[in-house]
Design a protein around this nucleic acid. Structure first.
Lengths: 237, 237
DNA sequence: TCGCTCGTGTCAACAGTGTTGACACGTGCG
DNA sequence: CGCACGTGTCAACACTGTTGACACGAGCGA
């Protein structure tokens, strides 16, 4: 009797859901995969443990057998995104500028694709393997640029904060406008930007250009700025 | 009678207590003041409507009579911080570099003081009066630098994203380390940073300098970078 | 002065969230 | 064979933001 009831429950579970049919045994990899898949679809909200459990076809609290809590789960997801971004860096190590551009661009792409995860990046440290590799890549790049000592770590830090903070901001901004199509570049301002030209003359005058700003172009502009600064600093040393 | 009762209430309200004893009638200003006071003390967590109600001495849901929801409340709090940061800009308008430095520095200070509010700034738009004033100030500064057209709006946007995103990140980072004293400048890295010198040689070599990085110095370094870029761009035009 | 509307504070409740403890099952090892 | 441990399940707790019904009191027109 007990067994038949259990079987019926299992049958119902496998049949009804639009999720993975009958995945009982979990591990970190499958949870991370499901988490990213969920983070891709959830528009604005941050993914919930209960939704994750539903997608996995298991009880939500089963996740706690593999992750200490949601923080650790989100860190793991973020580190996975970092690893993917690193994999997109294919240029020759000697072409350090191009490598930095590739890493930054890929990071923004990943964060924009999984906004619920990308938002989390304002906390800098994931304590995962991807993080150290990313730091090493950036230090290596600026080192090949000719920088050493304080200038080296400062340029790395400037690049890292810019990429992470602003990509996270873009991710969150895009997450909030759930309706918008997942375009590659979104406007930086939202509204029609109507201002009193007497109180705010500059805004009124530049309103067209302000509305023309695209988040990705702006993001890459900052990347170029740091690269140029590194080149200049190395030249003058 | 009415007047005296009002006076009594006001007097009682001004007297600082963990909870204002008998403040019945609310308005937006009172709620914003209490919200900031609460955001200052709550270490890591984001302030909750229920806590806010407790501090105000009213039912938590009374807040909804003056703000559409928590989003609008947080926007108002953030805009208040923007207004305070603007008030710290005292330099002569012609000294545009100093004005930008003052605005950036004050923003970081405010965000670090009220982390629960500062975190919210990764969403760029507060739709409040402070936001437009801040944009106008920055546009005015870069205009006095000699920039026009696309270069003008690009430098503004670069500065705005840097200040808001990174100050928000610092705010959140400091909010998480609840234990730490509210020092003016906190380390950028947390842990002891132990790495395998074979897998990550650059990190191992620069570990001392990396741990020496302070968030405020880094933040101001980015500000100077944008200022210098504006100067150079203006000079070459 | 009456009466009424409207703003506001109060209370209960709802639908969520992350998280924990007790329980039951299965596998694998001694 | 037997037992322990990892793991999924379930109920429950303590939160969160938010809504609807209700009550009170001030303001205002007649």
């Amino acid at each position: 009797m007990d067994a038949t009831a259990k079987a019926g429950i299992m049958a119902a579970r496998t049949g009804a859901t639009p999720e993975k049919p009958g995945a009982k045994r979990l591990d970190r990899a499958t949870i991370i995969a499901a988490g990213l898949e969920l983070a891709e679809t959830t528009g604005s909200a941050s993914l919930s443990i209960r939704d994750l459990g539903a997608k996995l076809g298991t009880d939500p609290t089963a996740v706690y057998r593999h992750f200490r809590g949601k923080d650790e789960l989100m860190s793991a997801l973020l580190d996975e995104l970092t690893l993917r971004s690193l994999a997109a860096v294919t240029a020759d190590p000697e072409r350090w500028q191009e490598r930095l551009r590739q890493l930054a661009s890929a990071t923004l792409t990943e964060f924009a694709r999984y906004p619920a995860v990308g938002q989390e990046a304002i906390v800098l440290t994931t304590h995962g393997p991807g993080e150290l590799d990313a730091i090493e890549l950036m230090l290596d790049a600026f080192s090949r640029a000719g920088l050493t000592g304080d200038a080296l770590v400062q340029h790395y830090a400037l690049m890292a904060t810019h990429v992470l903070s602003i990509a996270a901001g873009v991710a969150r901004a895009r997450a909030e406008r759930a309706t918008a199509a997942p375009a590659d570049s979104s406007p930086w301002f939202e509204g029609p930007l109507l201002v009193d030209p007497i109180k705010h003359p500059h805004i009124a005058q530049m309103s067209a250009q302000l509305l023309d700003l695209k988040d990705r172009e702006l993001f890459m502009l900052g990347v170029e700025s740091v690269i140029r600064s590194a080149e200049r600093t190395a030249r003058s040393a």
